[in-house]
């Protein structure tokens, strides 16, 4: 009993701001609102000498449910009309789909306003930096997405930029993002950047010479992308249904859709 009497009784407790409001909702809460969800899926981008390929599966998930078998994660930016004719920049987003759509719409408007205000198309470099700023502007309530931006740079070479959800970004040769990124990325290291591959004619031990990655041609890259996704589909439940690829060249964007396994 002595221990009980040493407690401060409720009547002696100091009052504090909004005490009444808090006690009204002070009972255990059944739900809290969490503003994010994960819609699964994976994306991947590889840049070549004169082209960039972006790819993404088209499955959208909620937990173990499949929302739809066709929800594109690749978006053309700029261009004219509802089909973005003449566009040469592609954005891919994976993660929380609602944020992805909002982000894509904002960047698309910006790319279009740039053309309207300056009378010329935005460069991928400028677009990439702008995307970083958009993401960082929401640093404390982020767009929950991994974005990859692809296009052709001012020298006509393939350009690829990848982002974290708060806007840290880097230009790269290749990048996988999303649910199966951990499965796809080491495969890409090996097949695109030739990591852990040595010239068989070089000497033994420390005289080994690492194979030097050279820009790949378009058909090879398309093959690697297909292999990466068919592999990811086998081992990741959130990846599947369809593969959407966009090939960006100086002449524009070519879109290819191929079915993937639906299980």
């Amino acid at each position: 009993m002595a221990s009980i009497s040493s407690f401060a009784m409720p009547s002696e407790a100091p009052t504090y701001s909004f005490a009444a409001a808090q006690s009204a909702s002070g009972q255990p809460r059944q739900h809290g609102f969490y503003p994010y969800t994960d819609n699964g899926g994976s994306t991947l981008g590889i840049s070549g000498d004169s082209f960039t390929i972006l790819a993404g599966d088209t499955r959208s998930t909620s937990g173990y449910n499949i929302n739809t078998r066709y929800a594109p994660k690749l978006f053309k930016l700029g261009g004219s009309g509802p089909n973005h004719e003449g566009s040469k920049i592609v954005l891919s987003v994976v993660g929380f789909a609602a944020d992805g759509n909002a982000l894509q719409e904002r960047l698309d408007t910006i790319v279009k306003m740039y053309k309207y205000q300056h009378g010329k198309d935005i460069s991928v470099h400028a677009c990439a930096q702008r995307l970083s700023h958009i993401l960082y502007n929401k640093r404390f309530f982020p767009y929950y997405v991994h974005a990859i931006l692809g296009g052709i740079d001012e020298e006509g070479k393939g350009a690829l930029y990848s982002y974290d959800p708060v806007g840290s970004y880097e230009r790269e040769q290749c990048r996988a993002a999303g649910a199966a990124a951990s499965l796809i990325m080491p495969f890409l290291d090996n097949q695109v950047n030739l990591k852990n591959q040595y010239d068989p004619n070089s000497g033994p031990g420390l005289e080994k010479v690492q194979r030097v990655p050279k820009p790949l041609d378009r058909t090879t890259v398309e093959e690697i992308v297909r292999d990466a996704f068919t592999s990811a589909v086998e081992r990741h439940i959130e990846v599947g249904d369809g593969l959407q690829m966009m090939i960006i060249t100086k002449d524009g964007i070519e879109e290819v859709y191929t079915p993937l396994k639906q299980d």
């Binding site: 990325m185 495969f187 090996n190 292999d227």
Partner: peptide, 10 residues
């Protein structure tokens, strides 16, 4: 995870 990716691919 990484091994699943590389093995399935190679």
């Amino acid at each position: 995870d990484q091994l699943f990716g590389t093995c399935e691919g190679l």
